[in-house]
Nucleic acid binder design. Structure first.
Lengths: 279, 279
DNA sequence: AACGATTTGTTCGTATGTATC
DNA sequence: TGATACATACGAACAAATCGT
């Protein structure tokens, strides 16, 4: 056919996977078997083909065992906003909102690791602080059913601590919720927030914590900046999830209640695949 | 050190890139030069190291030219929701909202490619249609400044057409906006929507349209389901963007106006990198 | 616990093709 | 046209992980 050999092999395997001939969880032929199947191509050529499937997230390789079609777990729906039902006017721990909605699963968080840092350029712009200003960062690792789920870091202006919100620098959970605590202590009420959502490749720390394979799985990152009534930013929270088992849900305006309780249980990409077919 | 040679080489190169010693756009040493730099490792070993950097999105290779540190373009902020300023109670083309906000850039869309399909399981669940029901799909490709930007497909129940919204099956832009047209024709008013955001590896069509490299760049997908006052879904829109040059912005509640107009111009991952450092 | 068989992972050498300048 | 640089392909050997005996 056309194109390099490793690509032809990869395409053929992809066809068999997507047709269901190689169902999720099943083992691919070994590299030696694939060699024979494809005109005695070199083992390295077969491995190039497999590598391209790994990068696309279609298969995983396990040393000593074989190569397997990925079994996607049920994606977890993280509710990021709900106008109608919850009516979250101001108070509660916005950063924990999604976690609290863990349907039928039990979330747990490590104690926060608290640091006082010179603000980065990025966070400084969000919190509208001068370069060189100090911020409190509170970092947590969250798990669901014991499995790593998200990494989260919240940044507050150090001035909040000086003005009396001293619990911010304690490495303990702030019980009524950090936003509520800051609101009560400093008389600041959260009236809105802005989420910036992006996807990127994981860094080393994230790969290790989430136990991600060498490649193929991106992470979703949300940077949430919360504002008080005067329009001043109160805090900035950066949360990172592995993209293969999470989706972020934003409800805007009136959304039927039964939909709000729905758990997403489909395969990602299905919609666009069908829509994009046939240039 | 520890670990395989190609990993050591990759780590060393990554260090030089992130320290600024190899700034964005600069050329890496050639494979032969890298061979000499790293204890006369095999050229294949050097290539393995570079490949891992490509997969992480740190460098790109160009045949005949060399390997270069990636230059990220300014990420485009796609506004997905604004409660306060725009006050989008119901009408306007929700799916085009983000595009209309193209700051200082000129968006253009292809004419819609219209198809009548049997509904997929995924879309059927969103639109609450029975299996086997028919839907109208309207597919568009959007560009900004002539460069590919997003792929978008909207699905409507075929019953809408039978009830009089005949423009839905015409391969032309619906001028007042499709949602408005449906609303006026069928007396349905959009009162809310639900966005599901995920990230995944691009499929073939997407890779081709967005001209994505073989690996390293994920796509962001948003599936937006719009609801009318009775709680019935009106339409479902799936939009896909390349993740390396877009971020989705959700404004909830009161967000200061000057923030709404801000263009994001930072590097992704900066926030979490600093926060995650030091386990 | 030890061993062998199987399977993927790493590393090397070499040759040739293709893109770019 | 030639030189340079990455892309593809092959063969070979040994390492490391896994599993069953």
């Amino acid at each position: 056919m056309t194109g390099p050999i490793y690509r032809q092999i990869a395409e053929e395997l992809r066809r068999r996977i997507e047709s269901g001939e190689l169902p999720p969880g099943s083992q691919l032929p070994t590299e030696l078997e694939l060699r024979e199947m494809f005109d005695n191509a070199s083992r390295n050529t077969v491995r190039d083909a497999i590598r391209s499937l790994v990068t696309r997230g279609l298969v995983v390789t396990r040393a000593g065992q074989g190569t397997f079609v990925v079994e996607r777990m049920v994606p977890f729906a993280v509710t990021m906003s709900t106008d109608s039902v919850t009516g979250l006017g101001g108070g509660e721990g916005v950063a924990y909102m999604g976690q609290a909605r863990a349907q039928r699963r039990t979330p747990e968080a490590t104690l926060p690791r608290v640091e006082i840092q010179t603000v980065s350029e990025l966070i400084g712009r969000e919190l509208r602080l001068d370069p060189g200003a100090q911020v409190v960062s509170r970092h947590q690792r969250l798990r669901i059913d014991g499995k790593p789920w998200s990494l989260q870091t919240s940044f507050y202006p150090m001035s909040f601590v000086e003005q009396g919100a001293s619990k911010l620098v304690e490495a303990k959970n702030i019980e009524p919720g950090a936003v509520k605590y800051v609101g009560e202590t400093l008389n600041l009420k959260q009236v809105g927030y802005r989420d910036q959502v992006l996807a990127r490749q994981p860094n080393e720390v994230e790969s290790a914590f989430f136990r991600l394979p060498d490649s193929g799985v991106a992470v979703l990152e949300s940077m949430r900046t919360a504002y008080e009534a005067g329009g001043k930013p109160i805090r900035c929270t950066v949360t990172v999830w592995p993209a293969d088992r999470n989706r972020l849900v934003y409800n805007v305006g009136a959304v039927p209640e039964e939909v709000l309780l729905t758990v997403a249980d489909d395969q990602p990409g299905s919609a666009s695949v069908s829509s994009a077919t046939g240039s």
